[in-house]
Each structure stands twice: as structure tokens, then as C-alpha cells.
Amino acid sequence: MDQFIQQFATGLSTGSLYAIIALALVLIYRSTGIVNFAQGEMAMFMTFTAWSVWNWDSNFWLAFFITLIIAAAFGALIELVALRPVESGPVLNPIIVTIGLVLILDSLALRIWQGQPKPFPSPAMFKGAPLSIGPADISRTNVGVFCMSLLIMALIYLFFNKTKVGLAMRATAQDRVAGSLVGIRVGRMLALGWVLSSMVGAVAGMLLAPTLFLSPTMMAGALLFAFAAAVLGGLDSPVGAIVGGLTMGVVQNMAGTYIGSNIDITVAFVVIIAILLVRPRGLFGRKAIQRV
């Protein structure tokens, strides 16, 4: 039983890593209708930026907030330069652009910061002995990541449901023409979606880098799971992203413990496909209603 509880807790911590990236994916999907394959690379790029800032002034939180500001500008820039020209075209075009961004950001990062993985600082509050919850030990970093995902989710909820801008963003994502007819500046709303998602991605990158180490490919492994988590939760639901991420982590860990560590990933994906066969919209995905 102790083993079960411990592995469940470890699964939750692994899952919290997936959840926070999934959250950024959901955010962009929800506000622009695009699945952003470059989410991991954008986060990586911002984490390298944070590392450079941190090298210049070794205060973690200063670097953290400066990076958030840069990330906001970075998100807006990408939307303006790379996405806006293709936004009105077929739905596949922006997706292809995000795949192109993956390659561009990868090569750029390799060129600027080189490929050798680098250690990344964790904030002082995440250091120290692990927390014991019953028989389970869980690292402070993971607790921190977990709390941060909940906090971001709450902020997103408030923003989308309690503010006018949030309402306008949801309207834009649902129907651009109708949105612009009622006076919403569609372009700005789309850019704002990228700004927010770039910022969440940056937070994810900075929190994960002490565990995954800083390198151009740091997000590659986790991003696959984040995608799976986002889809599992329902691509447009922030709650779903978190539940999906935690489910992924727990299933992977349980499979690794009780079936075999060499097929944990296989089992996790089989479980997801099974869930999607029963609920194609994901666990928390809303059923889209369309007039025919």
C-alpha cells in the first residue's frame, strides 16, 4: 500500500510537469483555434532567455519577471510576423507555420546558446528536503509546479469568465466574423492569446528546467506527453489540461510499477486512446454545436 501511495504521489509530480505545458497549449487553442506545435520550443527559448538574464543578475525572481515581460513581447511578435499572414487561409496553414517555428527556434537556440545541457537554478523556496505526505515523499519543486499550475488555471478561469476581454477572446475563437461584426478587434485578441500562452510557456520552462536541464531539446520529451494530456482533457479546457496531465503521469507510473518499466509509455498511450474512443472530445471537452 505504501508503494502504491508513493507511486501515486510520484505520478502526480511527473504529471504536474505535463499539466503545466498542456495548459499553455490549451490556452492558445482556446483563444485562437490553433494547435501550437511550437509551444515547447517557445518555452525553451524563453527559458534560455531567463538563463541569460539570470547570468547577468543572479536573482531568480528578478530573472523570472523580466522573462515574463520578454515572453509577452515574444508571443505578440510571433503572432504578428509569422501567424497573422496565414490566419485567414486554410486551417492547416497556421499549424504548418508552428511546425516551421519549431525548427527555426531549435536552430537559433543551438546557435546562440550551444547544445550542451546546462544546469538551471531553482528558486530557494523549492530547495531543501522533500515534503512527506503520509508514507510518500514528494519534492518541493514538484509541489511548486503543481501549485503554480493550479494558480495559473485559476487566473485563466477568472480572466476568460469574469472579464470583458476574456469574453471577447472567447467570442473571437468561436466565430471571427461575428466577433468583428460586434466590434471586437479580432487581430488584437489573437495576439493576446499568443501573449498569454507564451507567458505560461515561459513559466513552465523556468519551473521545469531544474529537472529537465536547459538544452534546445529539453521540451521534446515532455511536449509529447503534454499534447496527449491536452487532448485527453479536451483541447479547450484548462481544467482538462491539468486533469489530463496528472492522469498521464499517474497511469505512466502505475504501469511502470505494476506492469514493467520498459512499457510504461506504451501503456499510457493505449489507455489514452481507449479513453478517446469512448469520449472523442476528451474528458472535459465541450461538445461543439454547429448549425447545419
Binding site: 510520484t10 505520478g11 511527473t14 519534492s139 529539453m218 509529447l224
Partner: peptide, 11 residues
């Protein structure tokens, strides 16, 4: 593809 091996060490 995975960098984090905490779960394996835990086991």
C-alpha cells in the same frame, strides 16, 4: 525520450 528518472529511482 525522457529526462526525468525520479520515478525509477523511487521504485
Amino acid at each position: 525520450t525522457q529526462t526525468d528518472v525520479t520515478a525509477q529511482i523511487q521504485r
